[in-house]
């Protein structure tokens, strides 16, 4: 069969031009969604556990302003460092041990330990929900407050209680977190731990320990 490269090239150019124009039109149209802000380079560096990349960013833009830059949900890089969502305990512990060094670096570089996002969450609340024991301990050691509550009335203690995080509940109680804080639904940390027990019966032993600590 005789090959006609000219026709193939011609068709290719037409189709690619049409496709590209289509993409450009869509891109322009969707700009109005205003969600087109790239991931913070610091968050990307911590996702990839690249301290060199972080140092390069900080060297380029020194000072706490860069470190406390918020995303559209009001979250700082320190909050993202204190957040992880793994079901597997081993993966969570591995992430915790990596993130604790990041928390130290970010805090020593000027990150605000008590910054709040649009819902009123602090880095400590993210770490408490995530079940990252080492990160919670490090944040508290560095001076993060244990008392703030979000707009629903949740505190770091009540989040840890609901998630059945024995070590974190113990630490926060020792550090003076109040057991009597009440959410807008009228629930204390103890009530939330009991809710957790009902919802996750397979983790009864952990929740029972949390309940005991909160009694």
């Amino acid at each position: 069969m005789k090959i006609n490269y000219r026709v193939i090239l011609q068709d290719g150019l037409v189709l690619i031009t049409v496709s590209t124009l289509f993409v450009v039109a869509l891109s322009t149209g969707f700009k109005s969604f205003k969600k087109d802000v790239d991931l913070d380079a610091i968050v990307l560096a911590l996702n990839q556990d690249s301290k060199d990349e972080f140092n390069a960013i900080v060297a380029k833009e020194p000072g706490p302003e860069r470190l406390n830059r918020k995303d559209e949900f009001g979250r700082t890089p320190l909050m993202m460092a204190a957040y992880a969502n793994y079901k597997d305990l081993k993966q969570r512990e591995e992430m915790d041990s990596k993130r604790v060094s990041w928390i130290e670096i970010l805090a020593s570089s000027g990150a605000d330990l008590n910054a709040v996002d649009k819902d009123g969450w602090t880095p400590l609340m993210f770490a408490a929900w995530s079940g990252m024991n080492l990160s919670v301990a490090k944040l508290v050691e560095l001076g993060a407050s244990v008392t703030p509550a979000d707009r629903q009335g949740n505190t770091a203690l009540s989040l840890a209680a609901f998630r059945g995080q024995v070590g974190i509940v113990k630490l926060l109680v020792e550090k003076g977190a109040t057991k009597d804080a009440v959410t807008v639904k009228g629930k204390k940390a103890l009530d939330l731990a009991q809710d957790g027990l009902k919802q996750y019966p397979e983790r009864a032993s952990e929740y029972s320990q949390v309940v005991e600590l909160l009694l």
């Binding site: 496709s19 289509f22 957040y83 819902d119 995530s130």
Partner: peptide, 27 residues
């Protein structure tokens, strides 16, 4: 391509990274 942009915009608004803690906490 339409769903590429639409899906991206919807995920950014309704299924963003870190949404689960906020679901759990009633936010």
């Amino acid at each position: 391509p339409i769903n590429g942009f639409l899906g991206g915009a919807l995920v950014a608004s309704f299924s963003y990274e870190g949404i689960r803690p906020k679901i759990d906490s009633g936010n």
